[in-house]
Design a protein around this nucleic acid. Structure first.
Lengths: 147, 147
DNA sequence: TGTAATAGTTATACTTTTGTAACCATTACA
DNA sequence: TGTAATGGTTACAAAAGTATAACTATTACA
C-alpha cells in the first residue's frame, strides 16, 4: 500500500505499550478511577458534552460498558446526566467542576513518575519531544477521535 | 516544575486513549492474542531474549501475570522457555520464528483500519506524522522501555 | 554452613473490560 | 396509525488484568 503509512502504524504500535505502562498502570495506585473512567473524562473534557452513544463512539466501547463507567463517575460526582430537551431518548453527559478539577489532579499524580523520567532528557531532546508529541496528538485527534 | 515537561506529559496522556482505541481494541477481533501477550511479544522482538523478571520490568506487570501470559504464548507456539546455564533460577523467554511471523501479521491486521484513516491525511501531514511518531517512539524507548 | 535474597510458579480473589441478549421509551417514517 | 429504528439500561457470562500470599528451587554471602 503506502510505505510511509506502514511506518507510522509501526511507530504507533511501538508507542502504545510504553504509554500503557507509564499512564494506565500508575492510575491504579494513584487514584480510584479506572482507565475507562479516565478515557470518558478525557472525551468529556475535549467535547464538553456528549451523549452516551457519542462516548461509545469516541472510545469504541459497547454501550452497556459506558453505562457502568458513567454510573461510577456519577457516584464520585465527576459527571452528571442531562436529559436532551429535543430527543427524550438521549441522555447527555456533562463533566462537573469537581470532575474537571480532579481530572487534572489525577493526571498530575499519574504522570509524576513519567515526568521524572522526562526530566532526564537534555534540553534539545525535550524540545524535540514537545513538538513531536504535539504534532502526533493533533493529527491523531483529527482522524481518530470521533466516528 | 518544568512547563515543557508538563506539556509533553499532557500530550502523551491525550495520545494514549487514541492508541488504545485504535490498537488494543481491534486486537480482539483480529486475533486470538491478548493485549498483554502482544506487549510481551513486542518486548521480546526488541530485546531478543528476556527473563521472566525482565519482561515484568519492561511492562510493569506482576510476575504471576507474566507466567500466565507466557504460558498462553507457549501454547500457541509463539515463544519458548530456555533455562539459563549460568543461573538455574532464571527462565529465559525466546520468541520463535512462528512468533515473529505471526506478530508481524497481527500488527498488519490490527492496523488495517488505522491505516485507512491515516491515508486520508494529505502528503504533508503524513510526512509530519511519520517524522514526529518516529521521534516520540525513539525518545520514549530510551527512557521508558526498561525497568 | 546457615540464613537471607532472588527467580519463578501456583493458588486465590477481585476488579475491569468485553460481549450479548432482552427490554423499555422514544422517535422516524411508510 | 403502526412498524421499524434508535438510545439507553439491565442482566448475565466470560475473559483479561491486578494483587497478594505461599511455596520451591537456586544463589549469594556473612
Amino acid at each position: 500500500m503506502n510505505q510511509k503509512i506502514d511506518l507510522i502504524a509501526e511507530n504507533l504500535i511501538s508507542i502504545h505499550p510504553l504509554l500503557y505502562k507509564s499512564i494506565s498502570k500508575p492510575l491504579r495506585t494513584k487514584s480510584s478511577i479506572t482507565p475507562g473512567g479516565m478515557f470518558v473524562m478525557g472525551s468529556l473534557k475535549r467535547y464538553g458534552i456528549l451523549s452516551m452513544s457519542d462516548i461509545g463512539k469516541c472510545l469504541s466501547m459497547p454501550k452497556p460498558h459506558i453505562t457502568v463507567i458513567v454510573d461510577k463517575l456519577i457516584e464520585e460526582g465527576y459527571v452528571e446526566r442531562l436529559n436532551d430537551p429535543k430527543d427524550r431518548r438521549i441522555v447527555n453527559i456533562l463533566i462537573t467542576k469537581k470532575g474537571l478539577k480532579d481530572f487534572e489532579d489525577i493526571k498530575q499524580a499519574v504522570s509524576e513518575n513519567l515526568k521524572i523520567k522526562l526530566s532526564t532528557l537534555d534540553k534539545k531532546e525535550q524540545d524535540i519531544l514537545a513538538t513531536a508529541s504535539q504534532q502526533v496528538k493533533e493529527i491523531l485527534i483529527s482522524i481518530l477521535s470521533k466516528e
